[in-house]
Simulated scan of single mutants.
Amino acid sequence: MVETNLSSFRLVIFEEAGSGEYKIAGIKIYGHNITIERIYDILFDLPEIIDEPEEFIPYDFAGDLILNFLRHPDLSEYLVKICKIKGIPVIASGQNIPGAICPFTCCGLGHRKGLGAYGEQFGLPEYDVEVKDGCIKDLYVRRGASCGATWHVIRRMIGVTVDQALSTIGREIQYLCKADPSAFDPVSGKSPLHFAGKIHAAALKRALSSRF
Protein backbone atom coordinates (compact mmCIF):
# COMPACT_ATOMS: atom_id res chain seq x y z
CA MET A 1 0.00 0.00 0.00
CA VAL A 2 1.24 3.49 -0.87
CA GLU A 3 1.59 5.86 2.04
CA THR A 4 -1.10 8.51 2.00
CA ASN A 5 -0.20 12.16 1.58
CA LEU A 6 -2.86 14.22 3.36
CA SER A 7 -3.07 16.58 0.37
CA SER A 8 -3.47 13.76 -2.15
CA PHE A 9 -6.71 12.55 -3.67
CA ARG A 10 -7.10 8.90 -2.68
CA LEU A 11 -8.07 6.26 -5.23
CA VAL A 12 -9.06 2.67 -4.50
CA ILE A 13 -9.09 0.37 -7.52
CA PHE A 14 -10.86 -2.95 -8.06
CA GLU A 15 -9.92 -5.13 -11.04
CA GLU A 16 -10.02 -8.72 -12.27
CA ALA A 17 -6.81 -10.38 -13.40
CA GLY A 18 -5.16 -7.07 -14.25
CA SER A 19 -8.17 -5.67 -16.13
CA GLY A 20 -7.24 -2.11 -15.10
CA GLU A 21 -3.52 -2.50 -15.79
CA TYR A 22 -3.13 0.11 -18.54
CA LYS A 23 -5.29 2.70 -16.80
CA ILE A 24 -3.47 2.23 -13.50
CA ALA A 25 -0.17 2.74 -15.33
CA GLY A 26 -1.51 5.88 -17.00
CA ILE A 27 -2.68 7.34 -13.70
CA LYS A 28 0.70 6.67 -12.11
CA ILE A 29 2.59 8.31 -14.98
CA TYR A 30 0.36 11.27 -15.84
CA GLY A 31 -1.61 11.91 -12.64
CA HIS A 32 -0.61 14.52 -10.09
CA ASN A 33 -1.68 14.86 -6.47
CA ILE A 34 -3.29 11.42 -6.66
CA THR A 35 -2.48 8.51 -4.37
CA ILE A 36 -3.50 4.98 -5.31
CA GLU A 37 -4.42 3.89 -1.82
CA ARG A 38 -5.06 0.23 -2.63
CA ILE A 39 -5.48 -2.07 -5.63
CA TYR A 40 -7.68 -5.14 -5.19
CA ASP A 41 -6.99 -7.59 -8.01
CA ILE A 42 -9.33 -10.59 -8.04
CA LEU A 43 -7.48 -13.50 -9.59
CA PHE A 44 -9.93 -16.33 -8.92
CA ASP A 45 -11.66 -18.39 -11.60
CA LEU A 46 -15.12 -16.97 -10.95
CA PRO A 47 -18.41 -18.84 -11.36
CA GLU A 48 -21.08 -17.51 -13.70
CA ILE A 49 -23.29 -16.54 -10.75
CA ILE A 50 -21.84 -15.30 -7.45
CA ASP A 51 -24.30 -15.63 -4.59
CA GLU A 52 -21.92 -14.32 -1.93
CA PRO A 53 -19.89 -11.47 -3.46
CA GLU A 54 -18.70 -10.42 0.00
CA GLU A 55 -16.30 -13.36 -0.18
CA PHE A 56 -14.42 -11.49 -2.92
CA ILE A 57 -15.05 -7.81 -2.12
CA PRO A 58 -13.84 -6.56 1.28
CA TYR A 59 -15.72 -3.90 3.19
CA ASP A 60 -12.83 -2.28 5.04
CA PHE A 61 -11.54 0.07 2.32
CA ALA A 62 -11.55 3.85 2.34
CA GLY A 63 -10.80 6.48 -0.29
CA ASP A 64 -12.11 9.53 -2.12
CA LEU A 65 -13.03 7.68 -5.32
CA ILE A 66 -13.36 4.07 -6.46
CA LEU A 67 -12.38 2.94 -9.95
CA ASN A 68 -14.31 -0.20 -10.83
CA PHE A 69 -12.63 -2.35 -13.49
CA LEU A 70 -14.40 -5.51 -12.38
CA ARG A 71 -15.86 -7.61 -15.18
CA HIS A 72 -18.22 -9.87 -13.27
CA PRO A 73 -21.60 -8.11 -12.94
CA ASP A 74 -22.37 -9.62 -9.52
CA LEU A 75 -19.11 -8.29 -8.07
CA SER A 76 -19.40 -4.95 -9.82
CA GLU A 77 -22.94 -4.33 -8.58
CA TYR A 78 -22.04 -5.40 -5.05
CA LEU A 79 -19.08 -3.01 -5.01
CA VAL A 80 -21.34 -0.11 -6.02
CA LYS A 81 -23.79 -1.00 -3.23
CA ILE A 82 -20.98 -0.92 -0.66
CA CYS A 83 -19.71 2.40 -1.97
CA LYS A 84 -23.19 3.88 -1.77
CA ILE A 85 -23.31 2.95 1.92
CA LYS A 86 -19.85 4.45 2.43
CA GLY A 87 -20.68 7.58 0.45
CA ILE A 88 -17.80 7.08 -2.00
CA PRO A 89 -18.37 7.78 -5.72
CA VAL A 90 -17.64 4.97 -8.18
CA ILE A 91 -16.56 5.22 -11.81
CA ALA A 92 -17.33 2.11 -13.85
CA SER A 93 -16.40 2.92 -17.44
CA GLY A 94 -18.15 0.85 -20.08
CA GLN A 95 -20.62 -0.60 -17.59
CA ASN A 96 -24.25 0.15 -16.79
CA ILE A 97 -24.77 0.02 -13.05
CA PRO A 98 -27.31 2.15 -11.16
CA GLY A 99 -25.53 4.29 -8.60
CA ALA A 100 -22.21 4.38 -10.46
CA ILE A 101 -20.77 6.91 -12.91
CA CYS A 102 -20.63 4.97 -16.16
CA PRO A 103 -19.04 6.80 -19.10
CA PHE A 104 -18.85 4.81 -22.33
CA THR A 105 -15.04 4.82 -22.11
CA CYS A 106 -12.48 6.15 -19.64
CA CYS A 107 -11.96 9.11 -21.98
CA GLY A 108 -15.71 9.76 -22.06
CA LEU A 109 -15.90 11.03 -18.48
CA GLY A 110 -17.22 14.58 -18.41
CA HIS A 111 -16.46 17.17 -15.77
CA ARG A 112 -18.37 16.35 -12.59
CA LYS A 113 -18.28 17.62 -9.05
CA GLY A 114 -16.85 15.38 -6.36
CA LEU A 115 -14.21 13.61 -8.46
CA GLY A 116 -11.34 15.73 -7.19
CA ALA A 117 -7.90 15.58 -8.77
CA TYR A 118 -8.84 12.51 -10.79
CA GLY A 119 -11.81 14.20 -12.47
CA GLU A 120 -9.75 17.32 -13.17
CA GLN A 121 -7.01 15.39 -14.95
CA PHE A 122 -8.71 12.38 -16.52
CA GLY A 123 -11.74 12.06 -18.78
CA LEU A 124 -12.85 13.85 -21.95
CA PRO A 125 -9.59 14.98 -23.58
CA GLU A 126 -8.52 18.62 -23.69
CA TYR A 127 -5.48 19.91 -25.57
CA ASP A 128 -3.55 23.13 -26.04
CA VAL A 129 -1.78 23.32 -29.38
CA GLU A 130 1.08 25.23 -30.98
CA VAL A 131 1.12 25.63 -34.76
CA LYS A 132 4.00 26.86 -36.91
CA ASP A 133 3.95 27.21 -40.69
CA GLY A 134 0.71 25.26 -40.90
CA CYS A 135 2.06 22.27 -38.96
CA ILE A 136 1.58 21.02 -35.42
CA LYS A 137 4.59 22.22 -33.43
CA ASP A 138 3.45 20.84 -30.07
CA LEU A 139 0.46 19.49 -28.18
CA TYR A 140 -0.09 19.89 -24.45
CA VAL A 141 -2.57 17.76 -22.54
CA ARG A 142 -4.80 19.53 -20.04
CA ARG A 143 -7.02 16.49 -19.50
CA GLY A 144 -6.81 13.02 -20.98
CA ALA A 145 -7.64 9.33 -21.00
CA SER A 146 -6.42 7.39 -17.98
CA CYS A 147 -5.02 4.74 -20.34
CA GLY A 148 -2.53 7.37 -21.53
CA ALA A 149 -3.54 7.41 -25.21
CA THR A 150 -4.12 11.19 -25.13
CA TRP A 151 -0.42 11.65 -24.34
CA HIS A 152 0.94 8.76 -26.42
CA VAL A 153 -0.55 10.10 -29.66
CA ILE A 154 1.29 13.43 -29.42
CA ARG A 155 4.52 12.21 -30.99
CA ARG A 156 2.54 11.02 -34.02
CA MET A 157 1.06 14.50 -34.52
CA ILE A 158 4.19 16.64 -34.20
CA GLY A 159 5.37 18.01 -37.54
CA VAL A 160 2.32 17.04 -39.59
CA THR A 161 0.03 19.60 -41.19
CA VAL A 162 -3.04 20.75 -39.31
CA ASP A 163 -5.35 19.16 -41.88
CA GLN A 164 -3.47 15.87 -41.70
CA ALA A 165 -3.53 15.90 -37.89
CA LEU A 166 -7.28 16.47 -37.85
CA SER A 167 -7.88 13.64 -40.30
CA THR A 168 -5.54 11.10 -38.66
CA ILE A 169 -5.64 11.64 -34.89
CA GLY A 170 -8.85 9.64 -34.53
CA ARG A 171 -7.38 6.64 -36.32
CA GLU A 172 -4.13 6.87 -34.37
CA ILE A 173 -6.06 6.91 -31.10
CA GLN A 174 -7.92 3.77 -32.16
CA TYR A 175 -4.57 2.02 -32.59
CA LEU A 176 -3.57 3.09 -29.07
CA CYS A 177 -6.92 2.53 -27.34
CA LYS A 178 -7.01 -0.38 -24.88
CA ALA A 179 -10.79 -0.77 -24.92
CA ASP A 180 -12.31 -4.05 -26.06
CA PRO A 181 -12.94 -3.64 -29.82
CA SER A 182 -15.80 -6.14 -29.63
CA ALA A 183 -17.69 -4.02 -27.07
CA PHE A 184 -20.16 -2.61 -29.60
CA ASP A 185 -23.23 -0.85 -28.21
CA PRO A 186 -26.20 -1.93 -30.37
CA VAL A 187 -28.41 0.85 -28.98
CA SER A 188 -26.14 3.79 -29.79
CA GLY A 189 -24.31 2.10 -32.65
CA LYS A 190 -20.99 3.11 -31.08
CA SER A 191 -17.87 1.09 -30.45
CA PRO A 192 -15.44 2.27 -27.76
CA LEU A 193 -12.56 2.50 -30.24
CA HIS A 194 -14.48 4.71 -32.67
CA PHE A 195 -15.84 6.79 -29.80
CA ALA A 196 -12.34 7.38 -28.41
CA GLY A 197 -11.08 8.40 -31.83
CA LYS A 198 -13.91 10.86 -32.42
CA ILE A 199 -13.61 12.64 -29.09
CA HIS A 200 -9.85 13.08 -29.48
CA ALA A 201 -10.36 14.51 -32.96
CA ALA A 202 -12.94 16.87 -31.49
CA ALA A 203 -10.50 17.86 -28.73
CA LEU A 204 -7.82 18.76 -31.27
CA LYS A 205 -10.34 20.73 -33.32
CA ARG A 206 -11.40 22.71 -30.23
CA ALA A 207 -7.77 23.42 -29.35
CA LEU A 208 -7.09 24.73 -32.85
CA SER A 209 -10.24 26.87 -32.82
CA SER A 210 -9.40 28.39 -29.44
CA ARG A 211 -6.17 29.84 -30.85
CA PHE A 212 -8.12 32.54 -32.70
Rank of each mutant, 00 (worst) to 15 (best):
L75S: 02
E77W: 00
Y30S: 06
Y40E: 05
G159Y: 10
I50Y: 01
I88F: 11
R143F: 04
D163T: 11
I50E: 01
D138L: 11
P103Q: 04
R143C: 03
R171T: 15
Q121D: 08
R211A: 07
G148V: 03
K86H: 08
C83Y: 03
G20N: 01
V2S: 15
F212D: 09
L11R: 06
D60Y: 14
P125A: 08
F61I: 12
I88S: 11
L208V: 08
E130M: 15
N68C: 02
W151H: 12
A25R: 11
L124W: 04
G31T: 05
D60R: 14
E172L: 04
R38T: 12
T150M: 08
P73C: 05
S7M: 14
K84D: 10
H152S: 10
Q95L: 04
D45C: 04
P125I: 09
R143P: 03
S167H: 12
L115H: 01
I39P: 09
G87N: 05
Y40Q: 05
S8C: 10
V2D: 14
L193F: 03
E48Y: 11
H194K: 15
D51R: 12
S167V: 05
D51M: 09
A17S: 11
F69Y: 14
I199H: 08
V160G: 02
I66H: 00
G26M: 05
F14A: 03
G87M: 04
C147R: 03
F184H: 13
I85N: 13
A183M: 10
F61T: 07
Q121Y: 06
F14G: 01
C147P: 04
L166E: 15
L67T: 04
R211D: 05
A196F: 00
F14D: 02
F195G: 02
S76E: 01
A196W: 00
F14N: 01
A207Y: 11
R155F: 09
V80Y: 00
S7A: 12
R211S: 07
I158V: 15
C106G: 07
H152F: 07
D133K: 14
M1V: 11
I85L: 15
C177W: 02
R156V: 00
V160F: 02
K190V: 07
E54Y: 11
L43G: 11
A92K: 03
P125T: 09
D74N: 15
G26T: 04
F69M: 07
F9Y: 13
L139V: 12
F69Q: 07
M1W: 06
E130W: 15
F69C: 04
A17N: 13
K86R: 15
G31K: 05
G134R: 09
S19V: 02
I154E: 09
P192H: 06
A179V: 03
I154R: 09
R206N: 13
E54F: 10
P58Y: 09
P186N: 06
L65C: 10
D60K: 13
G119L: 03
I97G: 03
E48F: 13
K28D: 10
Y78N: 00
I173E: 00
H72F: 04
T4F: 08
L208Q: 08
T105R: 06
V80C: 00
L43C: 13
E77M: 06
G18N: 05
L65W: 08
A62F: 14
